[in-house]
Amino acid sequence: MEVEDLSINFETLYGTLKVLNGVNFIINEGEIVGLVGESGCGKSTFALSIMGLLPPQAKLMGGKIYFQNSEINVLDEKFMEKIRGRKISMVFQEPLTSLNPILTIGEQLMEAIKIGSDKKDVKKEEALKWLKRVGIPDPERTLKRYPHELSGGMRQRIMIIMALATKPSLLIADEPTTALDVTTQAQILKLMKNLVKENKVSVLFISHDLGVIAQIADRVAVMYAGKIVEESKIFEIFENPLHPYTKDLLSSIPKLEGKSEKLPTIKGSVPNLLNLPEGCIYHTRCKYVMDNCKVKEPELKEYLTKRKVACFLY
């Protein structure tokens, strides 16, 4: 998957929101790419745009998306329907909104599972197998239950099954483990890693949990106000973050031990998408801001060996 200069606006009653502002992004085969960034910076919108699931107020302002080396038109609903849930599948951020409240878990799983056979009992076996793999107790009984009768983490695992069971080439996982305790989470991360290895699946893994990102991603992209501001291999980004936002983000990770009075935060607030600042989008909060940053916009460019950063310091 390759995304070139993707820009998306949301036309609303109160003005035009510039949600994505020229996103460049590559995911290679069999690679897990982590996507991190401030709440509201456009991560889910980016994910939904690749799925062709943008809300009606979204306007594509420019950019190209290539999937398996051919350009795709995400606005072509007929075409997207063919690859969605087959070649590309997604774990949505809020499970309760994407599960149907009036169908049982069994009905929804059988619908999603795509295996050679259409026989009901074959599909049911497959569904039971998956429920076990993600550690849901009582698989038989779970099939008969409705979404609201499950705990938050169980619903999230149902979403994960629906996305994985279609055997996609590209999996988009938007905060897939937020409702899981750390031991169940470890089990799910391992399952995902194995699937990536076995089936050469590529994964876009969106998460606020930098611990999880450190454990699973091969590469990380950092988004700020609808732009990728840095992109590096996992080791490099944790060891030596380049972009000032990445630095600030990593130093806000709360420590487990030793209680502090106040947790560290990044000063200032996220820019208003109705009215983005001129120059570098981070300049209003950046500790290293120079005159240049206030007037010119830095581009995402290569730095050292295969790292990319959008900042005039480099």
């Binding site: 960034g37 709440s39 937020t178 606020h208 600030d248 983000l249 806000s252 990770i253 709360p254 935060t265």
Partner: peptide
């Protein structure tokens, strides 16, 4: 705070 980045979460 499950849907918040670490800085917003801290806030």
């Amino acid at each position: 705070t499950s849907a918040l980045d670490v800085s917003t979460q801290a806030q």
